[in-house]
């Protein structure tokens, strides 16, 4: 580990060794990380890819058979898969847009100069609260509230907003919007804190010169705040989109993909294909499709990261 060596300057072979050691040293520090990522990311992804190209894997007694892209054809033309794909995209896009709007609104509220520091601190904790809870607890919480005999139905009925008790999570027409709403509630704090940090980074003189030029509040927001937050907005939205596509727990524990697949997303569909139907080839194929979608989004994410770095 130590480079101190009394005879190092004398022998040239020793210098060569020292240099080689110096070259290898950074890899040495990285070796636990690389080992773990190779064993638990690179190789497993290779395995899923292989599974997606063959039939009869894992549980089937027949020997595996190479089928090329047949599984992909089967998956991509399947109506259930398409339903899950469109549910996933709807769930993710609506969540990202709503997270952005709520996160930014709350950040602007908390950033107001009309509030004292203590008031801000208290409301900040309340606003970040949903983020403290893990997905399975959020699922329980909203199953309690959205229960047909729960408090949400009671309040909406009393206010005359709905004519009758709704089965939010078990009505085919409502369930997808209900789980999307739950995800919106659970996910906006991530934007809120990032925007709070971002807003504090915008120099005051920008606003002052804007005001001198006669800009009103909306114009200041439109021409100073939004452009200044742009890099944060882009990377947040892309990262959030990827995470929302990953979302499994929340849906699994609220609706399980039901009723009648109306909230089936790609991750629950994959899980069922693997662990309920034991169709590991098909499950692997869907898993590869999800990976492809996420990688596509991730390319833009990594690019946006680089832009902010430079």
């Amino acid at each position: 580990m130590t480079t101190a060596n009394p005879s190092e300057s004398i022998q040239s072979s020793n210098i060569g060794w020292e240099q080689r050691k110096r070259k290898l040293l950074p890899y040495g520090y990285l070796s636990p990380t690389l080992l773990l990522l190779a064993a638990l990311t690179v190789i497993p992804i290779g395995t899923v890819f292989l599974y997606s190209l063959v039939d009869n894997v894992i549980v089937n007694p027949n020997p595996p058979q190479f089928v090329g892209l047949e599984n992909y054809e089967e998956v991509l033309t399947n109506r259930k898969f398409r339903g899950a794909l469109s549910n996933t995209l709807y769930f993710s896009l609506v969540s990202v847009v709503a997270h952005f709007i709520i996160g930014l609104s709350f950040a602007l509220l908390l950033n107001s100069r009309l509030l004292s520091g203590n008031v801000k601190a208290i409301f900040r904790v309340i606003y970040i609260l949903p983020w403290v809870f893990t997905a399975s607890i959020i699922a329980i919480l909203w199953r309690l509230l959205l229960n047909p005999h729960g408090v949400v139905n009671f309040v909406l009925l009393e206010l005359g907003i709905i004519p009758e008790l709704n089965e939010w999570l078990s009505d085919r027409k409502l369930a997808l919007n209900a789980v999307t709403f739950i995800n919106i509630w659970a996910g906006y704090p991530f934007y809120l804190v990032s925007f709070l940090a971002g807003l504090q980074g915008i120099p005051d003189d920008l606003y002052e010169s804007g005001r001198v030029d006669g800009g009103n509040a909306w114009q200041l927001f439109r021409h100073i705040t939004l452009p200044q937050l742009r890099p944060i907005i882009i990377s947040l939205a892309l990262l959030d989109f990827i995470w929302t596509i990953h979302q499994f727990t929340l849906i699994w524990m609220t609706t399980g993909g039901g009723p009648l697949r109306s909230t089936e997303v790609l991750s629950t569909y994959t899980y069922k294909a693997a662990f309920s139907s034991h169709e590991y080839s098909i499950a692997s194929t869907i898993a590869m499709v999800i990976l492809a979608i996420c990688t596509f989004v991730a390319i833009f994410y990594v690019r946006s990261q680089r832009m902010t770095d430079e």
Partner: peptide, 29 residues
């Protein structure tokens, strides 16, 4: 070092790998 940029990208990229994709091979592994 030589592969610094690539390795850095891979580590950033790991964030986007869906857990559900890894779940199937993990079980076997």
């Amino acid at each position: 070092f030589r592969f610094k940029k690539v390795l850095n990208l891979i580590i950033i990229g790991v964030q986007s790998v869906p857990p559900i994709t890894l779940m199937i091979p993990y079980f076997g592994l």
